[in-house]
Design a protein around this nucleic acid. Structure first.
Lengths: 230, 230
DNA sequence: AATATTGGTATATACAATATACCAGTTTAC
DNA sequence: GTAAACTGGTATATTGTATATACCAATATT
């Protein structure tokens, strides 16, 4: 049975943070001592994780200054830091699984979602519109929106299943470029979902999330074709 | 960040083995030294796990003889040994999630499954028929059948999602009695799935797995009503 | 009755992780 | 520009998990 080392777990966490777009190329990571508080770890453990990250070429450490995020390529990451069989997984696979889980979830959510939850979704969409030009921020909000719907389903197994595949989704984001203009279209789909949820129309809600995911697949694949650094 | 202790992991593994029906009430668990080989752990670690299991009332240890499985009740198990929010999860929730994931998987499997894989499924069904009176064995084969189909889909995210919720399913089995006569009906559904897979008829395959899961939900809920020990 | 197997106990060792303290270089604030 | 605050770099003592090994006593097996 494998022993899970804490510093290795932290390496995964940091890669996931970078993957989720929270820290992009060139950004400085939080100071070692900050991460100690954040993850409740000793500094030695955090330093070990940073050492590994530098060896992997994911960050460049400058004494007295901080750890700066470098460009990641999938080749750099050893398999034990990636989700299982990650190399065999295509974006199409991920979207297919998300469709299955998220349509099931939004159908349930149509019955169960509360008024205050609907308001929160409304606010998320507002934030999205304000972040039209900040793509990283937009992607974060998009992820939040989807997570929110899954939770609104009130079905824990679906939540667990979604989180399990979210790992793939997060990681796949690091290795592909981002799109630009399609943000507006994505917002349109989110509005459709919200409307269907308000009207408790499960059929339309499922249809909207389905089309949204298909759209996401298309534009991400297009972005990959003109991709430079991988 | 939580450190995952090896002996705690082993406790989870053993509970899962009991939950899956591999070791039932009164059975003797494998000897400490056997488990050391099986899980590649030192004896001290295995002993620590056994000590925890005895404290939890899950096994009774007899010196010089072995560790014997006791009746488990959900109350005995601390939350960190259960899947997340397990107490809030109903069988209906689990079946709902399984429907979403497994219909998606069997649809893909209809395209991708190979001849030799179909033969393996055929053999599984044969074994099921031979295990009509051995319910524990039958349940094990049923689980294998479903896992096999998920893997035949060739979609890793679906596999990951299924494994994530399988945890709930396994655990829920410990806390409910088993059914008796419905085995034949279950076999009938599995034959329908196999036939649909052979004919590459995705629609019928999905329909068969759907009905099978609905049937499973019904009989398990019935069994729960006349349940004695929980 | 003899032998093999089982859990029970003890001990030495390796190493991950914590907790502290101090240094030297960089950044920030005044 | 200088002082203060913050950053990574280094060293050390300590705790606790897990390994490896050996031997004992009770139980099962032959």
């Amino acid at each position: 049975m494998d022993k899970e080392l804490l510093h290795t777990k932290l390496v995964r966490e940091v890669i996931a943070m970078i993957a989720s777009g929270k820290y992009s190329d060139g950004t400085r990571l939080p100071a070692e001592r900050k991460l100690c508080e954040q993850f409740q770890l000793s500094r030695g453990t955090v330093r070990q994780a940073f050492y590994d990250l530098e060896k992997l070429g994911i960050v460049k450490i400058r004494a007295g200054s901080g750890a700066y995020v470098q460009k990641i390529s999938q080749k750099k990451l050893p398999t034990h830091l990636l989700p299982p069989d990650f190399s065999k997984v295509t974006l199409t696979d991920i979207i297919y699984a998300r469709k299955a889980i998220e349509t099931a979830a939004i159908t349930l959510a149509c019955e169960k979602i509360s008024i205050s939850q609907l308001e929160q979704l409304e606010q998320l969409i507002e934030k999205m519109e304000q972040s039209k030009d900040n793509l990283l921020e937009f992607l974060k909000l998009d992820t939040q929106f989807h997570q929110f719907i899954i939770h609104a389903s009130g079905n824990m197994p679906l939540v667990t299943a979604f989180e399990a595949i979210a790992e793939y989704h997060k990681y796949s984001q690091v290795f592909s470029s981002l799109y630009e203009e399609e943000v507006k279209i994505a917002i349109k789909y989110h509005k459709k979902m919200l409307l269907a949820l308000k009207l408790r129309n499960a059929r339309n809600a499922a249809k909207a999330i389905m089309k949204h995911l298909e759209h996401t697949e298309q534009i991400t694949n297009m972005a990959k074709q003109k991709d430079i650094a991988v």
